[in-house]
Amino acid sequence: MINPRLSNAIPKRRILQKWLFPASVLGIYGILFIEMPDKAFQAFECICKISVNVLFPFCLVFILMVFLNLFLTPLHITKWLDKGVCIRGVLLTMTAGILSTGPIYAWYPLLKNLHKRGFPNSLIAVFLGNRSVKPFLLPVMISYFGWAYTLILAVLNVLGTLLTGYSVGFLVKK
């Protein structure tokens, strides 16, 4: 997977912050087990059901992530960007957006740099829009919504990002 902060170790504080949310919800469960054990057991059953539902798609997600990490590096993405507004440039920007991962904040410095160097606003919008299409996460979506829905949504979403890109290019002049 393409994450610009690939080699950065995660600071301990940030790890703790991330686990604060599930820990707080677990705290609520703790109170619930004392005050309303029957409700807590019902909620626990729901969690088990959801966990079983997402387990298999998650395994697929992991395998796809490994494949992407094996064959793609952040530099593929930086190479694909910056090709200009031609069909090839748009297609490569879309591919870069689809295959990019990691928090969007990690990509802002790169986009800022491209923006400074005259990279068109329309292609930046295309890149950002296509970040919403994540092929390696689709197994989870398919397990919830089915193939047909997932495929239609993904195709329309990609087409929509082109429309957004074109409109942004038209409305936001440098």
Binding site: P22, Y29, I47
Partner: peptide, 13 residues
């Protein structure tokens, strides 16, 4: 994990 835990509560309450 937090989302799944919250959904559990959501479904009950």
């Amino acid at each position: 994990l937090g989302v799944i835990l919250l959904i559990g509560l959501f479904q009950v309450f």
